[in-house]
Amino acid sequence: MWMNNCRKYRADLALLAGNDLDAATRLEVERHVVTCPECRAHWQELQSSQQALEQSRGTAVVVSLETSSVWVDVQRQIRVVDERSRRGSWRGWLPAVAMAAACLAVILITSDILRESTVPPEFTRQPAYSAGTPVSFSTSSAQPTIVPASAEELVPERLEDARVDDRPRRRSNRAERLSNGPYRGF
């Protein structure tokens, strides 16, 4: 009977030791301790260990912001983050366009090979993914003028983007950052 009571009071005493108990509960606990030698002994030990713990906090750590603020380093790193976010804003449609560009690049390369080879165009199989945009290899339209320009624009963009992402950062978890990093529009 009293054992159960004591168990409840032991938790309260631990809280009381660090002044983490409300006044009403405190009164109740104190009343019990007066009448219970076991809890009284427990309380005395708690006071002693708690005092040791609190006194061990250590001497003041002086953080001189003048000499050691992390802001300079953080500022440099968040610029990289911003840069990546700006690039990230293209990511919504980039895969589709990149795929199209890649297809066109393949076609162009193929057409170069074809022009240099003796194989007649009608015997070459067109890539399945270009089915919707039949490409003629007749002399006039062999190289659609718009294609090389956009292919050149997109590919370096992607490479550079990857390079920024791969830049090593001290003790960073890049994979997690990439998966968690939200898009920011600034």
Binding site: R10, A11, A14, L15, L46, S48, S49, Q50, L53
Partner: peptide, 17 residues
């Protein structure tokens, strides 16, 4: 947190003593 704190202080006390 309060429950863990009470447990932690009690455990600390036991080992300390």
């Amino acid at each position: 947190i309060r429950w863990r704190l009470a447990e932690a202080r009690t455990k600390f006390k036991q080992i300390w003593t």
